[in-house]
Design a protein around this nucleic acid. Structure first.
Lengths: 343, 343
DNA sequence: TTGTACGCGTTATCAG
DNA sequence: CTGATAACGCGTACAA
């Protein structure tokens, strides 16, 4: 086991120059360097396969080249694509990303942020677990560059990149309305802690008031996607509770899938027995007959945009006025919400 | 912007002791420390909110506490769950993971490994992009702890954690055989570069010889999942080329989904017009009528097991005899392959 | 155009 | 039980 990597000193010695000169070479400061020494250093570096030690570099220069990324659930397609976008853009700009999974657990989140700061990450991209976060605020006060991805915090003190949740949810309910659905259920997971869900919920209520002239609370069903039985029950309740063409709007991909399962269990046919649409286009939605209408989020672009803003913050070293960026999602209309095909 | 974190020196001064003593405290070496100084140091640390600088620590101690993870495609559910397992187990043992996405590109893979080594990661978990890799071999020679996840390399010089691909593929074809399918098509992406796919391919051929008494090559269809038209074409070819109950085995989740789409396009009914099964249980397989038979991989456990072995390597500091660990997958039988329901 | 000498924040060696 | 002091590998005033 020989992990005896060559150091800058060895390079200097072999090239018959001082460490300083090598260091200059490494950082591209050959403004006043003779072409000859330059060449000599280059040769030695290649020969020794020398690579600078980032730890030492960071210790001295206060620039670790590391960016910390916290996601609430890496196993969700949304997160993994987000992370991909972040990774791509950071790499392109010479940063490495340290990705950690908070499991939607605020305690873990805090712990991880500490650990990341211990490693002197230069900035943080956070998919927050809650709707308020004093710890993050404190860090921001200390000047740590931070960008929120997907989920905003209540007090908009942070740069945030997300998608136009309110608008899209509203538009989609409007689509259902236009298609002739007389009743719409909003199936969701707990709405209290996650801002994004809450926004969609609010948009739904607004749409109910504007379009259906009701308050809408009766059409909201809070479920636990893992518990299919309960989803089936709630769906049944909804259907038995009124008449006319009815549809379900699912707050996210996980919920959507569980509603599909419930529909299968109840042997209902889409869209005649029930219409269905909701968030997240994760591949399968197109394939389940008759095709499920979904809102497709620009996860990758959210990742790009978030890292772009973060790197700006890091490099420019000054604090920007926090800005909320909302990227457009796309409504993909398929058979599950089309009661009267045009053709 | 004040990123003036307190240092060990400041703690020492405030606590009226030397840096050495503080360092001892930090590393739990209070064997010979008076309870009083101990208490005093603790108080000061809390007061100052002091946290040790990992860069400095790593520089001195050669232990960065970082583990590098390379995945070929983070956006695939397999990878993201794998990464979750790795992250969970590493964290539990005091390591941070740096995750990078190689996009199935060997050049990127190499570049990233370099970058990770520059950050002095203590070990590497790699979901390799190719079937041979001299660079990794070289690193191993230098004593870098490495574990391969999911995809083995041709020469088994590395610790590797994967699932029992050969056995499961074989068993699944056997299941089709027993169910009465007379013909089985193997739909796959290019098989030449990825060992895991190749193994499944070999298992398929073997099963063909053993069970159907043919060579099997004619039943192999290499497709590009993104190009649905071609999948439709190939599927048609297969169906028109023979008689009797026919089924498709898809080499992975992506391929499986594209075959489902093709089946939908051709308005075929499962399992009567065609049986279907294949790798990866990513949620939707259960929901597409009549339920798709799949092989469910233990991605999470692969992640756990891989990091477990890696950390062993790191901590014990000696080289183990490389070992290939094959975790069992599970065959989940659903309607798409059941020609004659028992009930 | 190049080199000397010091410091970044820790840990380890040795001597009290 | 505790404390100087020297590294770790690199960057940078300052000097030459």
């Amino acid at each position: 086991m020989r992990s005896d990597k060559p150091t800058i000193a060895q390079v200097a010695q072999s090239a018959q120059v001082s460490k300083t000169t090598v260091s200059r070479y490494l950082n591209g400061r050959f403004e006043f360097m003779s072409a000859e020494t330059r060449k000599r250093i280059q040769t030695v570096i290649e020969e020794l396969e020398y690579r600078p030690n980032n730890l030492a570099r960071g210790l001295k220069s206060k620039r670790s080249g590391l960016i910390g990324v916290l996601v609430a659930d890496i196993s969700s397609p949304f997160s993994s694509i987000l992370v991909k976008g972040i990774g791509d853009h950071c790499k392109q700009n010479g940063f490495q990303t340290i990705i950690v999974n908070t499991d939607n657990d605020p305690a873990k989140e805090r712990e991880y942020i500490q650990a990341l700061m211990d490693n002197r990450v230069e900035g943080l991209i956070v998919n927050v677990t809650g709707k308020h976060n004093d710890f993050l605020l404190e860090l921001r006060e200390q000047g740590v560059p931070i960008v929120l991805a997907d989920r905003p915090l209540e007090h908009l003190d942070f740069d945030t990149v997300t998608s136009n949740n309110f608008q899209m949810t509203y538009d989609t309910v409007q689509h259902l309305h236009q298609e002739g659905f007389r009743r719409v259920a909003f199936f969701t997971q707990d709405v209290s802690e996650i801002q994004t869900r809450y926004t969609r919920y609010q948009a739904f209520l607004q749409a109910c008031r504007d379009l259906y002239d009701i308050q809408g609370d009766d059409w909201v069903y809070v479920i636990e996607p893992a518990d299919i039985e309960s989803v089936v029950r709630e769906l049944n309740t909804f259907l038995l509770n009124g008449v006319g063409p009815s549809a379900v709007f699912a707050v996210n991909g996980v919920t959507l899938l569980s509603v599909v399962q419930a529909i299968t269990r109840l042997k209902l046919t889409m869209p005649t027995d029930i219409g269905l649409c909701g968030y997240d286009d994760w591949g399968w939605a197109a394939v389940i007959p008759p095709g499920i209408t979904v809102i497709s989020q620009p996860s990758y672009r959210v990742g790009i945009e978030a890292s772009k803003r973060l790197i700006q913050q890091i490099l420019s070293n000054r604090r920007f006025k926090p800005k909320l960026v909302e990227l457009p999602s796309e409504l993909v209309i398929r058979g599950s919400t089309v009661l009267h095909p045009k053709s």
